[in-house]
Design a protein around this nucleic acid. Structure first.
Length: 200
DNA sequence: CTCTTGATCTTCT
DNA sequence: GAAGATCAAGAGC
């Protein structure tokens, strides 16, 4: 008898076009939950994101363009990668029309593709911890400053829409000290692959 | 389990 | 000079 997978890998949905990102950053953030993100074929299902917009002070774009955040001020559908705490890389998807300087920070994935590569890069075996944070998932997927400004609908990056409905939880964003009250964190409540749980 | 600390890049004061 | 969209390791409970 053929073995039966306990948690079958979801079928990949339609490839997301750049126009997917050309609308309110909070709508994009919500719709990214359950989508699959791959870099050179390695990645998984997005389970946690946060939205940022230049009109609120937690955003990197709040004080206007700098060399680091310049890509945020351009058209939607491109990657914004920045250095976090001098150590890690974090990846965002630029959203809304040029000038909105809005982006979705990818905070956690459920690993589904290229587990061996992720384990090698992370020097870690436990699947739970491979991509359970914004700095962890970039390391697992091999994302660096070299990926800054890359389009999201061309290799090496691939994004696929979710194929089934998911209930999306919201909450306050993690690790910020300004605009802390905005409920712009989105994710799968109860997922074992989050950077932090969503409180009930 | 929680709390503390070091790692050291980019921006802001 | 200080803070920050973080993480891992170690101490203490």
């Amino acid at each position: 008898m053929a073995p039966v997978s306990k948690t079958p890998t979801p079928r990949l949905g339609k490839a997301l076009k750049r126009s997917f990102f050309d609308r309110d950053v909070r709508e994009v953030a919500r719709d990214l939950i359950g989508a699959t993100m791959l870099v050179d074929g390695v990645g998984g299902v997005i389970v946690e994101v946060e939205a940022y917009h230049h009109t609120e002070p937690a955003a990197h774009s709040y004080n206007g363009p700098t060399p680091r955040n310049q890509i945020m001020f351009g058209p939607p559908g491109f990657a914004y990668v920045y250095r976090s705490y001098g150590i890690h890389w974090c990846v965002n998807f630029v959203c809304e029309a040029a000038g909105s300087a809005a982006a979705v920070l990818i905070r956690a994935l459920e690993p589904t593709h290229g587990l061996a590569a992720m384990r090698r890069r992370r020097h870690l075996q436990e699947v739970h911890a491979l991509c359970s944070g914004p700095g962890k998932l970039t390391e697992a997927l091999g994302i660096t400053i070299a990926h800054n400004t890359l389009p999201l609908d061309r290799p090496p990056i691939a994004l696929h829409a979710r194929t089934e409905d998911v209930e999306v939880a919201t909450g306050i964003r993690i690790g910020i000290t300004k605009a802390v009250e905005l409920p712009w964190r989105y994710g799968v409540r109860g997922s074992k692959f989050l950077s932090k749980p969503f409180p009930r």
